[in-house]
Write a protein that binds this DNA or RNA. Structure first.
Lengths: 252, 252
DNA sequence: CGGGCCATTGACATTCTTCAAAGTTAGTGG
DNA sequence: CCACTAACTTTGAAGAATGTCAATGGCCCG
């Protein structure tokens, strides 16, 4: 009980073993004893607020971060002040994996709404993982998952239709919320239309128009950041390129 | 000397320690002793030919592969017979990292030209890596690099201009050839225009037109698969969005 | 030598971006 | 608590970039 964290109002620190994200996060598949060891190296910082940075591109890499509550976006800033949004991260998702290679952050991470984050010093994690094979395995899995996830996005951006992209984006959010026991069909977007467009490679105006079009077609109800998916099946059809324009997907 | 591989004409097996790719591949940063241990688990298969598959999406995952010579493309097949090209892999590059998570291949890998490939059974690699911290570290770095690389491509596809995409593609190839001591300005494309277009999210015709346009503008010389880059600086300018249309990159 | 795939080119269609403007919302400071 | 500004969102109209269709020629491989 030595390394146990204190619980306070300002800063509710839930040990990994009690965290609702345990099945999504690093401890997955670990023995209780090993979870405890992991727990001891995890730092739980106080809440972050909209606009705060976890890190910026070029910062020295020290820790991985796990979203505990709220949401975070990662993005690659470009010289001219622009940026490319790389991802939106929900509770249970790891951030900073791309920084391991050069011990330097490859992108920036900014908090989209009031959020809680766990910090895992990588040196400690690496050391622990060489002592705990199941943790090493879980690390490999998580890194691999991230690669697979990025490839999924590549496939998404390869599809050209703007409708397909937005539909896929919404379904992705929906499924991720669902796994976290949030509603799969009723949620709030923590990112702006601008950020959605940037992420999907579309102009803001296109995103906005699509939302109203989807609404007109009864696919969803949108009121600013509040989204209600009304016909998830049909959204899935759109992703497949089945709906509309008589499925034209070749690219053999 | 027990596990040493035999050298034959049909199948030139170079031990890791003698491989020219040592600085790009897994052994990077390892002690000679550890390289030897790694060497013992690496399988070196006989040459593969154009069209051969290393694995297909859905195959059970056993091994990672490293391109030793030649080139390989990875792609995600879609139900309707189409596909999304995920990457082109040159000597020294690892393939299959996205399969670790579910022990099942997440994409397919097809050989583009006569190639040589090393196969690394993952179970052995994982076991060895938990005994050799520097190998574990190198594994983390490689996985992390792959994530960073995928993010770079996302950024690339976020740029909308077709010119920027093709220029970035050519520069990427050029730099990768360079690191392998091939010419950075004179090389052959092992992939078809179709595959390039698919990878970049462009129609074949657009790719073809861009090649001729680039040639007309003196940026390069193209003759079927043979490419000679004549003005790498200007290609880099195009990537930055500096050249042409008075740099219009906002997406703040 | 033949067939099929690959590449190129032209003409046309369409989607999406760009530009412009107005309405909304949220946050700030008085 | 209210006024005010800045940022965000929406909508319309026009234009541009890229995709689609179609046809031809060339190359590679069997």
């Amino acid at each position: 009980m030595s390394g146990r964290k204190i619980i306070s109002f300002e800063n509710i620190k839930v040990a990994c073993e009690n965290c609702s994200l345990v099945s999504l996060c690093l401890p997955m598949g670990l023995d209780p004893d090993d979870v405890e060891k992991l727990d001891e190296i995890v730092k739980r910082n106080r809440p972050l607020h909209r606009g705060d940075h976890l890190f910026r591109e070029g910062d020295k890499f020290h820790s991985l971060f796990v979203v505990k509550a709220g949401s975070v976006k990662t993005y690659a800033p470009s010289e001219d002040g622009g940026e490319q949004v790389l991802g939106f991260h929900l509770p249970g998702e790891l951030i900073g994996l791309d920084a391991i290679e050069n011990e330097e952050h490859h992108c920036s991470a900014k908090v989209l709404e009031t959020s809680a984050v766990c910090e895992i010093p990588f040196t400690n994690l690496e050391e622990l993982s060489s002592q705990v094979p199941s943790l090493q395995h879980q690390m490999y899995r998580l890194l691999s998952r991230e690669i697979g996830h990025d490839e999924d996005i590549l496939t998404l951006l390869g599809k050209r239709s703007a409708e397909e992209r937005l539909a896929a984006f919404l379904i992705s959010l929906s499924e991720r919320f669902k796994r976290r026991d949030f509603s799969a069909s009723d949620f709030y977007l923590s990112m702006s239309r601008h950020e959605i467009g940037n992420y999907l490679g579309l102009a803001v105006e296109t995103v906005s128009r699509l939302f109203t079009r989807f609404q007109d077609e009864g696919l969803l109800k949108v009121e600013r950041k509040h989204i209600q998916l009304l016909d998830i099946d049909r959204l899935n059809n759109i992703i497949q390129g089945e709906e509309r324009n008589g499925n034209k997907r070749q690219y053999t």
